[in-house]
Amino acid sequence: MTKYIIRRLLMAIPVIFLMILATFVLVQAMPGGPFDAVGQRSMPEHIRILLEKRYGLDKPLYEQFFSYLGNLLQGDFGPMLRMPSQTVNDIVAQTFPVSIQLGLMSVAVGFIIGIPLGIIAALNHNTAVDYITTFLAVVSVSIPTLVLGPLLIYTFGVKYDLLPIAFWGADPPFTLGFLPPLTKKFFLHATMPVFSMGTGMAAGITRLTRAGLLDVLSADYVRTARAKGLRERVVIVRHALKNSLIPVATIIGPLLAGAVTGSFITEQIFALNGMGRRFVASIGQREYFLQTSLVLIYGLLLIFGNIFVDVLYAWLDPRIRYD
């Protein structure tokens, strides 16, 4: 297994390299530059030339790319071009933990709500409970964060004034880099963003768990276990559940990807200082290093996420062996 993980990581290197290259070329190819006039404030020509020299933007593209790559290897994401007081590392340090907390908590909410509901629906197959659960699940996958977020804000933030409507309840640095403080403020602030992302996920997981469990419950070995007189609960826990979770594990990959997409919108709606909002805010600007670095970080998250899913798979399904 360790060997497998190492091989996967090695295989990821060319992927990451090509991804950085493509992004770097793309952002640099955009018309205009980082020091173009913004509204009325234009920059004197000689200062612009000086600045470009300072950040190496006057050099040929390949030289810039390799020096950026060299810096990356030393853990330096590069400068912020229009915000000289900060570096990309500063921005990442501020925003990355927020996005990670948001994403992980949403996925957790998805599983905590989705799996029990899926089990309940499957155990009550073809009863009112099943129909209502499935129906509600389809309804909630049909309400995107883009709609649910404002709805929650209006209901709980504006109308009943129960929850704060914007900002994250804590600022980095966090314990271990991402562990949130267990304060009331943090949870109050997190509730709406996390739920507006998590309910859709929960609905998807409910549907998958239900389908997976129904499949397994009709399989022969579960019927045998029942025939042997094992109690219903034992049958479910010992035999069926683990197997029915295998299809659920497949969704973690898309979920992680969805957490990225979702975070673009959620962070925007709740004005959270996360990577997604930073990325969206930067698209009108020419922050070459910020944009490339954020794409790189998303890529790393995706790659580690996929490896994690594969390992989880092997753990859930002993028939799967990686050599």
């Binding site: 990821a12 992927v15 090509l18 991804m19 493509a22 992004t23 793309l26 952002v27 190819a29 955009m30 018309p31 205009g32 990807a257 990225v260 997409t261 673009f264 990325f279 969206v280 698209i283 009108g284 944009q291 954020l294 794409v295 998303y298 890529g299 998250l301 995706l302 790659i303 996929n306």
Partner: peptide
Amino acid sequence: FLYGIPLLPIIILMTVYFNA
């Protein structure tokens, strides 16, 4: 390979590029 890279942010950048 394409599954392994975050296509959404890249495609956002491409859209921006195209619009610009």
